[in-house]
């Protein structure tokens, strides 16, 4: 069964636009379409100039995060019926510079990720075979390891909108993932990096990140545990 919808998309084509503007599309799409299906329908059958990122269409690659009807979602996993009415308003992720249409510049996002050393730092000899940790030890980091780096959380954070130097929830979550990993030895180094006015302490527990996270990770909880760790260490 097909449904008629009106889709407004924030367009920006650097070769001809001074600033972004809204463009409206009227479409008939299957009722069970996702946001990505709708973008594909526009791109393939209506307007080939529309630019957006997509890859796996299975909520794993983290390419298609965007703002739809006022909130950050993954286009591929979000059915249009998540939103009431037959109107959609699609924008690029807030807080990031726009390269073209729905494609944003993620360089700053990944630079911040690099700053927290998103890899295992090991001082002790590495075992020949498996580097074991107990199920209990793994359970502390399991959820934080689900992050697909889509940027939906960092881009939804008002602290980042106000201050682009803020590390943001995704980088802090990555720091958590290694700081609380029983095999890692880089804790002090990472805590030094995130214990900063543009790090941990710029999280004001607004919870936009958790509302936006397509993997439903308790990001604010992880950041709070990092805050506790820093306080414990300084006492």
């Amino acid at each position: 069964m097909k449904e008629s919808i009106i889709v407004k998309i924030l367009r920006y084509q650097p070769e001809k636009d001074q600033k972004p503007h809204w463009q409206t599309y009227r479409l008939d799409v299957p009722a069970d379409s996702t946001i990505l299906d709708i973008l594909n329908e526009i791109h393939w059958n209506h307007d080939g100039t529309l630019a957006y990122r997509r890859s796996c269409r299975s909520a794993i690659c983290g390419s298609c995060a965007m703002k739809v009807n006022g909130q950050n979602v993954l286009a591929c996993e979000t059915p249009m019926h998540k939103f009431r009415g037959n109107r959609l308003k699609i924008e690029p992720l807030p807080g990031f510079p726009i390269i073209k249409d729905l494609v944003v510049d993620m360089d700053g996002f990944f630079d911040k990720l690099q700053r927290v050393k998103p890899y295992m730092v090991v001082d002790k000899p590495i075992p020949d075979k498996e580097f074991l940790q107990s199920p209990e030890e793994f359970s502390r980091i399991r959820e934080s390891a689900y992050c697909i780096l889509c940027g939906a959380c960092t881009s939804s954070c008002p602290s980042l909108w106000a201050n682009e130097n803020y590390l943001g929830p995704a980088a802090l979550l990555k720091a958590y993932r290694f700081i609380f990993d029983s095999r890692d030895d880089g804790t002090d180094e990472r805590l030094d990096i995130i214990n900063d006015r543009n790090g941990l302490w710029r999280c004001h527990t607004i919870f936009n990140c958790m509302e936006a996270c397509p993997k439903h990770i308790d990001i604010t909880g992880c950041i709070s545990r990092l805050k506790n760790r820093v306080v414990d260490n300084s006492l």
């Binding site: 807030p94 807080g95 008002p158 936009n208 958790m210 509302e211």
Partner: peptide
């Protein structure tokens, strides 16, 4: 501040 971003309980 992105006023058009949906406000949830936390925000």
């Amino acid at each position: 501040y992105d006023l058009s971003y949906t406000h949830f309980v936390g925000s």
